[in-house]
């Protein structure tokens, strides 16, 4: 993933999703997950195109088990959408760009 998408950790997660003034879509991923690799460029495109409307962040589940457990993530990639720190939507499994945009449209 490019540097444009911030990597969150157990320590920074809460502050990041609460402080944002736009919805935050967090990508729960790991190095060994094939579908996670495929969705990464899709998220980069969305981050660039929807700049100012949504923030995209990523969280490596291998290194951040606390947040992963707290949100009961049991399959990756899982995308969680937060607004004002509150969980709004859960998207399990990789998607194409058009479908992903459609699923998050209601929250933008």
């Amino acid at each position: 993933m490019s540097q444009s998408i911030p990597a969150l950790s157990d320590a920074t997660f809460d502050e990041h999703v609460t402080a944002a003034d736009v919805p935050v879509l967090v990508d729960f991923w790991a190095e060994w997950c094939g579908p996670c690799k495929m969705i990464a460029p899709v998220l980069e495109e969305i981050a660039a195109e929807q700049d100012g409307k949504i923030q995209i962040a990523k969280l490596n589940i291998d290194e951040n088990l606390d947040v992963t457990r707290r949100f009961e993530v049991m399959s990756i990639p899982t995308l969680l959408l937060f607004k004002d720190g509150e969980l709004q939507a859960r998207i399990v499994g990789a998607r194409g760009k058009a479908q992903l945009l459609q699923e998050i449209a209601a929250y933008l």
Partner: peptide
Amino acid sequence: GEPSSTSDQPG
């Protein structure tokens, strides 16, 4: 194809 978590995906 497009990213997916099933075998219906690129590759």
